[in-house]
Simulated assay, not measured.
Amino acid sequence: MTGALTQISRTEHLPARIAAQFARQIQEGDLKPGDKLPTENTMSKNFGVSRTVIREAIAQLRNEGMIETRQGVGAFVIDRPTRHIRLDDRRQMDTHGFRDLFQLRVPLEIEAAGLAATYHRAEHLRQLDEALQRMSVAGGDDGIVADLDFHRIIAAATGNDYFVQFLGAVSDRILQTIVESRERTRLDEIVAIVNREHTELRDAIAARDPVRARAAMRAHMVGSAERIALRLEFYL
Rank of each mutant, 00 (worst) to 15 (best):
L108F: 06
D129L: 02
G139K: 13
V137Q: 10
E111Q: 15
R105C: 00
G139W: 07
L108K: 04
Q103N: 07
M135T: 02
Q103F: 03
E111V: 10
T118Q: 13
S136L: 12
A122D: 12
A116M: 02
A138Y: 14
A113P: 10
L132H: 04
Q103K: 12
A138N: 15
R121W: 06
V137C: 00
V137K: 14
A116D: 01
S136N: 11
A122V: 07
V106N: 03
Q133L: 14
R126K: 14
Q103E: 03
A138E: 13
R105E: 01
E130G: 11
A113T: 11
D141V: 08
L132W: 01
R105M: 02
R126D: 10
L115W: 00
L128K: 00
Y119T: 08
I110H: 08
D129Q: 14
A138F: 15
A113N: 10
R105A: 02
G114F: 08
L115V: 00
H120I: 03
E123N: 07
H124F: 10
A116F: 04
T118V: 11
A116V: 02
V106D: 09
G140L: 07
D141E: 13
A117Q: 08
G140E: 13
L128M: 15
H120C: 05
H120K: 03
Q133R: 15
Y119A: 12
A122K: 14
D129A: 06
Q127P: 00
T118D: 00
E130V: 05
A113C: 14
I110Y: 11
M135Y: 03
A131G: 02
L125C: 08
R126F: 11
P107D: 07
R105Y: 04
D129F: 02
P107A: 09
A138K: 10
A138H: 15
E130N: 13
G114I: 07
L125W: 01
G114S: 08
A112M: 13
A131R: 00
L132C: 07
A117C: 10
E109N: 01
G114A: 07
L108W: 08
Q133D: 10
G139T: 13
Q127Y: 07
G139A: 09
A131L: 00
E111W: 05
A113H: 11
E109I: 03
L132E: 06
A113G: 11
A117M: 07
Q103D: 03
A122E: 13
L104T: 05
A116P: 01
E109K: 06
S136E: 13
D141F: 06
H120W: 04
R121Y: 04
H124K: 12
A117H: 08
D141I: 08
A138L: 09
E123T: 08
E123C: 04
E109L: 02
R134N: 09
Q133I: 05
G140C: 02
S136V: 07
S136I: 09
